[in-house]
Protein backbone atom coordinates (compact mmCIF):
# COMPACT_ATOMS: atom_id res chain seq x y z
CA UNK A 1 0.00 0.00 0.00
CA UNK A 2 1.11 3.58 -0.68
CA UNK A 3 0.13 6.18 1.89
CA UNK A 4 0.96 9.81 1.36
CA UNK A 5 0.54 11.62 4.67
CA UNK A 6 0.52 15.39 4.23
CA UNK A 7 3.52 15.47 1.90
CA UNK A 8 4.87 18.97 1.39
CA UNK A 9 7.93 20.04 -0.57
CA UNK A 10 9.26 23.55 -0.86
CA UNK A 11 12.18 24.78 -2.93
CA UNK A 12 13.32 28.11 -1.47
CA UNK A 13 10.16 30.19 -1.57
CA UNK A 14 8.34 27.96 -4.01
CA UNK A 15 6.03 25.24 -2.71
CA UNK A 16 5.89 22.43 -5.25
CA UNK A 17 3.66 20.09 -3.24
CA UNK A 18 1.27 21.24 -0.51
CA UNK A 19 0.02 18.91 2.20
CA UNK A 20 -0.77 16.08 -0.19
CA UNK A 21 -2.53 13.05 1.26
CA UNK A 22 -3.82 10.04 -0.60
CA UNK A 23 -3.80 6.29 -0.37
CA UNK A 24 -3.33 3.57 -2.99
CA UNK A 25 -4.60 0.17 -1.93
CA UNK A 26 -3.21 -3.20 -3.04
CA UNK A 27 -4.91 -4.34 -6.23
CA UNK A 28 -5.53 -0.76 -7.32
CA UNK A 29 -4.18 1.40 -10.13
CA UNK A 30 -4.24 5.02 -9.04
CA UNK A 31 -3.81 7.77 -11.62
CA UNK A 32 -2.12 10.96 -10.52
CA UNK A 33 -3.06 13.61 -13.06
CA UNK A 34 -2.34 17.29 -13.34
CA UNK A 35 -1.04 19.99 -15.67
CA UNK A 36 2.71 20.36 -16.32
CA UNK A 37 4.52 21.59 -13.21
CA UNK A 38 1.64 20.69 -10.89
CA UNK A 39 3.86 18.56 -8.61
CA UNK A 40 3.25 15.00 -9.85
CA UNK A 41 6.89 14.09 -10.43
CA UNK A 42 7.97 15.79 -7.19
CA UNK A 43 5.39 13.73 -5.31
CA UNK A 44 6.62 10.53 -6.95
CA UNK A 45 10.24 11.42 -6.19
CA UNK A 46 9.35 11.90 -2.53
CA UNK A 47 7.59 8.52 -2.47
CA UNK A 48 10.71 6.96 -3.98
CA UNK A 49 13.01 8.53 -1.40
CA UNK A 50 14.79 10.63 -4.01
CA UNK A 51 13.62 13.87 -2.40
CA UNK A 52 13.05 14.41 1.28
CA UNK A 53 9.70 16.03 2.14
CA UNK A 54 9.83 19.41 3.82
CA UNK A 55 7.01 18.18 6.04
CA UNK A 56 4.74 15.17 6.17
CA UNK A 57 5.79 11.67 5.26
CA UNK A 58 4.70 8.61 3.34
CA UNK A 59 4.60 4.89 3.92
CA UNK A 60 5.36 2.27 1.31
CA UNK A 61 4.10 -1.17 2.30
CA UNK A 62 4.34 0.08 5.86
CA UNK A 63 7.92 1.38 5.53
CA UNK A 64 8.45 5.05 6.31
CA UNK A 65 10.17 6.79 3.40
CA UNK A 66 12.28 8.96 5.70
CA UNK A 67 13.44 6.50 8.34
CA UNK A 68 13.25 3.22 6.45
CA UNK A 69 13.90 4.24 2.88
CA UNK A 70 16.00 1.25 1.75
CA UNK A 71 13.30 -1.21 2.87
CA UNK A 72 10.70 0.92 1.09
CA UNK A 73 12.76 0.91 -2.12
CA UNK A 74 13.15 -2.86 -1.96
CA UNK A 75 9.42 -3.42 -2.60
CA UNK A 76 9.12 -0.78 -5.32
CA UNK A 77 9.68 -0.61 -9.05
CA UNK A 78 9.92 2.74 -10.80
CA UNK A 79 9.82 3.93 -14.38
CA UNK A 80 10.85 7.58 -14.63
CA UNK A 81 9.45 10.10 -17.08
CA UNK A 82 12.82 10.39 -18.80
CA UNK A 83 14.93 7.35 -18.01
CA UNK A 84 18.63 8.12 -17.59
CA UNK A 85 20.37 4.78 -17.88
CA UNK A 86 23.97 3.54 -17.86
CA UNK A 87 24.68 4.07 -21.55
CA UNK A 88 27.81 1.97 -21.73
CA UNK A 89 26.07 -1.20 -20.56
CA UNK A 90 24.02 -3.44 -22.80
CA UNK A 91 20.34 -3.88 -21.95
CA UNK A 92 21.00 -7.44 -20.84
CA UNK A 93 23.86 -6.39 -18.56
CA UNK A 94 21.79 -3.60 -17.03
CA UNK A 95 18.85 -5.84 -16.19
CA UNK A 96 21.14 -8.46 -14.65
CA UNK A 97 22.86 -5.75 -12.68
CA UNK A 98 19.48 -4.55 -11.36
CA UNK A 99 18.62 -8.14 -10.46
CA UNK A 100 21.93 -8.39 -8.55
CA UNK A 101 21.20 -5.23 -6.60
CA UNK A 102 17.76 -6.61 -5.68
CA UNK A 103 19.59 -9.79 -4.67
CA UNK A 104 17.65 -12.07 -6.99
CA UNK A 105 19.27 -15.50 -7.04
CA UNK A 106 21.40 -16.05 -10.14
CA UNK A 107 20.55 -18.98 -12.33
CA UNK A 108 18.41 -20.21 -15.18
CA UNK A 109 15.13 -19.10 -13.61
CA UNK A 110 16.31 -15.50 -13.45
CA UNK A 111 17.60 -15.60 -17.02
CA UNK A 112 14.30 -17.04 -18.15
CA UNK A 113 12.32 -14.31 -16.35
CA UNK A 114 14.45 -11.57 -17.90
CA UNK A 115 14.24 -13.13 -21.36
CA UNK A 116 10.47 -13.37 -21.01
CA UNK A 117 10.10 -9.69 -20.14
CA UNK A 118 12.46 -8.60 -22.92
CA UNK A 119 10.50 -10.67 -25.44
CA UNK A 120 7.17 -9.39 -24.15
CA UNK A 121 8.28 -5.82 -24.73
CA UNK A 122 9.91 -6.54 -28.08
CA UNK A 123 13.45 -5.60 -27.09
CA UNK A 124 14.99 -9.03 -26.88
CA UNK A 125 16.78 -8.45 -30.20
CA UNK A 126 18.39 -5.27 -28.92
CA UNK A 127 19.32 -6.62 -25.49
CA UNK A 128 22.94 -7.18 -26.50
CA UNK A 129 23.32 -3.61 -27.73
CA UNK A 130 24.68 -0.74 -25.68
CA UNK A 131 21.90 1.32 -24.12
CA UNK A 132 23.36 4.44 -25.76
CA UNK A 133 22.08 3.09 -29.10
CA UNK A 134 18.49 2.77 -27.87
CA UNK A 135 15.67 5.00 -29.03
CA UNK A 136 13.53 6.81 -26.46
CA UNK A 137 10.85 4.13 -26.59
CA UNK A 138 13.40 1.35 -26.18
CA UNK A 139 14.97 3.11 -23.18
CA UNK A 140 11.55 3.34 -21.61
CA UNK A 141 10.90 -0.33 -22.29
CA UNK A 142 14.22 -1.42 -20.77
CA UNK A 143 13.45 0.83 -17.82
CA UNK A 144 10.12 -0.97 -17.40
CA UNK A 145 11.86 -4.35 -17.56
CA UNK A 146 14.23 -3.12 -14.82
CA UNK A 147 11.24 -2.04 -12.74
CA UNK A 148 9.44 -5.37 -13.16
CA UNK A 149 12.30 -7.85 -13.03
CA UNK A 150 12.35 -8.17 -9.25
CA UNK A 151 8.54 -8.61 -9.14
CA UNK A 152 7.78 -5.58 -6.98
CA UNK A 153 4.63 -5.28 -4.90
CA UNK A 154 4.42 -1.61 -5.67
CA UNK A 155 4.95 0.15 -9.00
CA UNK A 156 5.40 3.86 -9.56
CA UNK A 157 5.16 4.82 -13.22
CA UNK A 158 5.76 8.32 -14.51
CA UNK A 159 4.39 8.67 -18.04
CA UNK A 160 5.20 5.05 -18.75
CA UNK A 161 3.46 4.89 -22.12
CA UNK A 162 4.79 8.11 -23.62
CA UNK A 163 6.86 7.43 -26.74
CA UNK A 164 5.99 3.71 -26.82
CA UNK A 165 4.66 2.12 -30.01
CA UNK A 166 0.98 0.96 -30.05
CA UNK A 167 1.86 -2.71 -29.65
CA UNK A 168 4.15 -1.89 -26.71
CA UNK A 169 1.49 0.36 -25.16
CA UNK A 170 -1.10 -2.40 -25.41
CA UNK A 171 1.33 -4.90 -23.87
CA UNK A 172 2.05 -2.53 -20.98
CA UNK A 173 -1.67 -2.04 -20.43
CA UNK A 174 -2.21 -5.79 -20.23
CA UNK A 175 0.75 -6.29 -17.90
CA UNK A 176 -0.48 -3.54 -15.56
CA UNK A 177 -4.01 -4.96 -15.50
CA UNK A 178 -2.60 -8.41 -14.83
CA UNK A 179 -0.40 -7.17 -11.98
CA UNK A 180 -3.33 -5.27 -10.50
CA UNK A 181 -5.49 -8.38 -10.49
CA UNK A 182 -2.66 -10.19 -8.70
CA UNK A 183 -2.72 -7.57 -5.92
CA UNK A 184 0.02 -5.12 -6.98
CA UNK A 185 -0.25 -1.47 -5.92
CA UNK A 186 0.27 0.82 -8.90
CA UNK A 187 0.60 4.60 -8.92
CA UNK A 188 0.88 6.15 -12.37
CA UNK A 189 0.92 9.59 -13.85
CA UNK A 190 0.00 10.21 -17.43
CA UNK A 191 -1.15 12.94 -19.78
CA UNK A 192 -2.92 10.41 -21.99
CA UNK A 193 -6.31 10.68 -20.32
CA UNK A 194 -7.88 7.80 -22.27
CA UNK A 195 -5.33 5.45 -20.69
CA UNK A 196 -6.01 6.83 -17.22
CA UNK A 197 -9.75 6.48 -17.76
CA UNK A 198 -9.37 2.92 -18.97
CA UNK A 199 -6.79 1.65 -16.46
CA UNK A 200 -7.18 3.56 -13.21
CA UNK A 201 -9.56 2.50 -10.49
CA UNK A 202 -9.21 5.88 -8.81
CA UNK A 203 -7.82 9.17 -9.99
CA UNK A 204 -6.33 12.14 -8.14
CA UNK A 205 -6.03 15.48 -9.91
CA UNK A 206 -3.46 17.89 -8.54
CA UNK A 207 -2.92 21.50 -9.45
CA UNK A 208 -0.26 23.83 -8.03
CA UNK A 209 0.80 21.07 -5.66
CA UNK A 210 -2.61 20.51 -4.07
CA UNK A 211 -5.16 17.78 -4.62
CA UNK A 212 -8.20 19.41 -6.21
CA UNK A 213 -10.22 16.27 -6.92
CA UNK A 214 -10.01 12.59 -6.09
CA UNK A 215 -12.20 9.57 -6.64
CA UNK A 216 -13.47 7.01 -9.10
CA UNK A 217 -14.61 8.14 -12.55
CA UNK A 218 -18.21 8.27 -11.32
CA UNK A 219 -17.23 10.39 -8.34
CA UNK A 220 -15.25 12.75 -10.55
CA UNK A 221 -18.21 13.10 -12.97
CA UNK A 222 -20.32 14.21 -10.05
CA UNK A 223 -17.73 16.81 -9.08
CA UNK A 224 -17.55 18.25 -12.59
CA UNK A 225 -21.23 18.41 -13.37
CA UNK A 226 -22.24 17.77 -16.95
CA UNK A 227 -18.85 16.41 -18.07
CA UNK A 228 -18.76 12.89 -19.42
CA UNK A 229 -15.21 11.76 -20.12
CA UNK A 230 -11.99 12.30 -18.19
CA UNK A 231 -10.66 14.91 -20.61
CA UNK A 232 -13.74 17.09 -20.10
CA UNK A 233 -13.59 16.57 -16.34
CA UNK A 234 -9.87 17.39 -16.28
CA UNK A 235 -10.29 20.57 -18.31
CA UNK A 236 -13.30 21.64 -16.26
CA UNK A 237 -11.32 21.27 -13.04
CA UNK A 238 -7.92 22.58 -14.13
CA UNK A 239 -8.91 25.09 -16.83
CA UNK A 240 -9.18 24.67 -20.57
CA UNK A 241 -7.23 26.25 -23.41
CA UNK A 242 -7.26 30.02 -23.87
CA UNK A 243 -9.29 30.16 -27.08
CA UNK A 244 -8.93 33.92 -27.43
CA UNK A 245 -5.13 33.78 -27.48
CA UNK A 246 -5.12 30.82 -29.83
CA UNK A 247 -7.32 32.72 -32.24
CA UNK A 248 -5.07 35.76 -31.92
CA UNK A 249 -1.97 33.66 -32.70
CA UNK A 250 -3.60 31.98 -35.66
CA UNK A 251 -4.66 35.36 -37.07
CA UNK A 252 -1.07 36.62 -36.73
CA UNK A 253 0.58 33.55 -38.27
CA UNK A 254 -1.28 33.90 -41.57
CA UNK A 255 -1.06 31.16 -44.18
CA UNK A 256 1.37 28.42 -43.20
CA UNK A 257 4.08 27.72 -45.73
Amino acid sequence: MIESLGLTKTFSEFTAVKDLSFKVEPGEIYGLLGPNGSGKSTTMKMLLGLLRPTSGTARIAGHDIINDVVAAKRVMGYVPEEPVLPERLTGWEFINYVADIWRMPRGSQRQQDIEELLTLLDISDASNDLIETYSKGMSRKISLVAALVHRPKILILDEVQAGIDPRGAATIKEILNGLRSKGATILMSTHILEIAEELCVRIGIIKDGSMIAEGTMDELRMMAEGQRNLEEIFLALTGGPDMQRIAQYLRGSGESS
Binding site: V69, K73, M76, P83, I101
Partner: peptide, 9 residues
Protein backbone atom coordinates in the same frame (compact mmCIF):
# COMPACT_ATOMS: atom_id res chain seq x y z
CA UNK B 1 18.39 8.31 -10.88
CA UNK B 2 18.37 4.65 -11.87
CA UNK B 3 20.89 4.08 -9.08
CA UNK B 4 19.20 6.23 -6.49
CA UNK B 5 15.93 4.29 -6.70
CA UNK B 6 17.69 1.01 -6.00
CA UNK B 7 17.46 -0.51 -2.54
CA UNK B 8 20.87 0.77 -1.56
CA UNK B 9 21.50 3.62 0.83
Amino acid sequence: EYLLVMPVS
